[in-house]
Design a binder for these strands. Structure first.
Lengths: 385, 385
DNA sequence: CACTCTTGGAGAAACGTATCTCCGAAGGCT
DNA sequence: AGCCTTCGGAGATACGTTTCTCCAAGAGTG
């Protein structure tokens, strides 16, 4: 009796205002112990169905809602996943203005919810230490730079991290990225087949993986086919600079007859620049840019775009992260690698395991000559293998 | 001694793996009590600066990070704010595809972070009970319907709720909305001044506040000026239906010579429909639609849009919510109303306090006759008041 | 010297849950 | 009858903070 009274009847002197019902109140009202209530509500333990339903009913009647904080403290799981982008942004959150990030974040949120997790978007840094005040089960990091202090900190804290973008030198649990090299080569081939003789590139000055890999692939391709590289760079985060760079590219004496722009706004910028120079697209200039926006379906002419499939990336990244969260015992960062389904892993060149996602080239008028020239590779007649 | 040993030296039999340092470990290492560590780190209590800095240094050395879960449990504050939209969406998260929501959510996230809170986007419902597993200090609800069960539940749980959109009959702490009536009247006046004789409306079939208030304002205006209403409705969530409705509107025998479309895609839909009927914009048809997208700046012709200023809304909503969170004692849902700065409250017609935000009409070519007809109200000569 | 005040800090009680351990009782078996 | 097993459930501890209460010792004061 004393025990039961002690469990249910405390609240020593504090006024009993309108406090929310706790598990103790439910236990007292149902005439059982806390253990039984917990077990009944969580479907654990060995209890007859009758007890279970009775407890549930009492809990319902009292409007009992378990405290998420207490549960998190006890179980070590918060059901919360962080999402952050380290580059792109002195200020908080310009980043979702880019279609890629917006779509990726949306897909990630959706995937997380589908598995019972909520996703919280966090800045790489802010004056308040938001990171320290939130219990995170894991974190998705977009484009972590080499030696990212944030990733290191998370690693030390034992929080699993999966990155969107192959990490340079970061202790991430896993990563997902597009095969940027293949994507660029695919575009260059596509343009060549459309009759391009000199392909230019509009690229960025930043050193993130995407920019770097894409540019390198372009340069390698140039070296291989013996074309002189023709490219202009600009700070990708500055929207005005893109138009200027596009102009520069088309004003060069060795003006390219086809251009691939690495960033989303490049399509419109290049189109405008082409008009300014009296160049017809696609007749005088073939155009492709990397974009997730569907405005390029309705431009005049419609522009061929490369989609990085942000939805797939976001979904995959979150699923990998949750696999890691739920698979590992937490604490010791031991071989999480083997927890991932093999189909998702590249050849075992050691950690961390990465996944390469395919891109998609959406071919529109801007990269197809109206009357296809008979060039190096004529269309094969049907029937021939 | 026994006490100190007891506090620092437990971990009875469990293996001492690589556990994260707790506040006890810091206390032991610094040779002080837990209280002192907590006070030193949180800037509370009365401690000499020397002790404070020494403790801080030890904590730093041990890589001590306070447990967010424990802190939340103790203080009752998680630093987390929920954001959800109840209408628009059987499936999770189509909603951020609308520019309005995307911008609003972005601004809300940013505002929350600026005040040290993180924002988590949640679905109105999902098969996992995500809501129950997360400790929320407050919630922003977009467009709650009458008697929203979610809002009621949150109210019962004592969680402050601020809504974007004037709530019909919901126990919200406060709300923010545009002055939809004024916005519609402003547009109708604008179109009249541009020479419109019969203004049509493209509106939705749903019963949300925005649609309802806007439509009512239109009908009232028609009654007042003696114009027969000319409008078509369609389910706003169905993108294909918009084009059909636009077509219907322009195919009517009493075809309007000006149209206001309540939803974002209506501009392009109406423009396309106008082309199909050989109507020139703005010569034969004046056009305005409500949109946050800047594509309407570059359409042919550019289309006049009404912006609901989602950024302002998102920022305001979050600030009101955090004011409520930090102002009230929690638990008893007593007069939170008086905690809000009076400048933000409408005339005291009882709770909940609401804020009306102005909209912005971005006038472009689609709503201005090229050669302004000399109509009912000629431009006033300068100098005249 | 007896006293109050201030300084610096220790103890311990929550916060509300999950879960490990253990126990009584009832039945089944030899 | 004694023993084992299963059933149903109670007790108690730990999760890691924050904070309320209280105490000892020195400093000032009459």
């Amino acid at each position: 009796m004393t025990a039961a009274a002690n469990q249910s009847g405390r609240r020593p002197t504090t006024s009993r205002r309108l406090e929310r019902a706790g598990i103790r109140d439910v236990a007292a009202a149902a005439g059982v112990s806390i253990t039984t209530v917990s077990d009944a509500l969580n479907g654990k333990g060995r209890l007859p169905d009758e007890t279970r339903s009775r407890v549930r009913e009492v809990a319902e009647r009292l409007g009992y809602r378990p405290s998420a904080a207490a549960r998190t403290l006890r179980t070590g799981r918060s059901g919360l996943i962080g999402l952050t982008v380290t580059t792109y942004g002195e200020e908080p959150f310009t980043f979702t203005e880019f279609a890629y990030f917006a779509e990726m974040a949306r897909a990630a949120t959706s995937a997380a919810l589908g598995r019972g997790y909520a996703l919280v978007v966090l800045p790489a840094s802010s004056r308040h230490d938001v990171w320290g005040n939130i219990a995170l089960d894991g974190t998705v990091v977009i484009d972590p730079p080499d030696q990212d202090p944030l990733v290191s900190e998370l690693y030390r804290s034992g929080v699993p991290v999966v990155s969107d973008g192959k990490p340079g030198n970061c202790p991430v649990t896993a990563w997902v990225d597009n095969d940027h090299e293949a994507a660029v080569l695919g575009i260059l081939d596509h343009l060549s087949e459309a009759g391009a003789r000199r392909i230019g590139l509009l690229t960025g000055t930043s050193t993130d993986t995407y920019t770097r890999l894409s540019t390198e692939a372009y340069l390698d391709w140039c070296a291989k086919v013996g074309q002189e590289p023709v490219y202009e760079t600009y700070p990708a985060h500055d929207p005005a600079a893109g138009a200027v760079a596009a102009d520069r590219l088309l004003a060069r004496p060795d003006r390219p007859d086809a251009v691939y722009g690495l960033f989303d706004p490049n399509g419109t910028d290049l189109l405008a620049a082409a008009r300014r120079y009296g160049l017809r697209v696609p007749d005088d200039l073939l155009l492709v840019c990397c974009s997730e926006s569907d405005v390029y379906a309705t431009t005049e002419p419609p522009i061929t775009t490369l989609s990085l499939k942000p939805r797939k990336i976001g979904t995959t990244v979150v699923n990998l992260l949750i696999d890691a969260i739920e698979g590992v015992d937490s604490g010791t960062g031991v071989d999480i690698a083997r927890l991932f389904p093999p189909r998702f892993r590249t050849a075992g060149t050691g950690p961390p395991p990465g996944t390469l996602m395919p891109t998609e080239l959406i071919v529109r008028a801007s990269s197809q000559r109206r009357s296809p020239r008979t060039t190096v590779s004529p269309p094969r007649p049907p029937g021939e293998v």
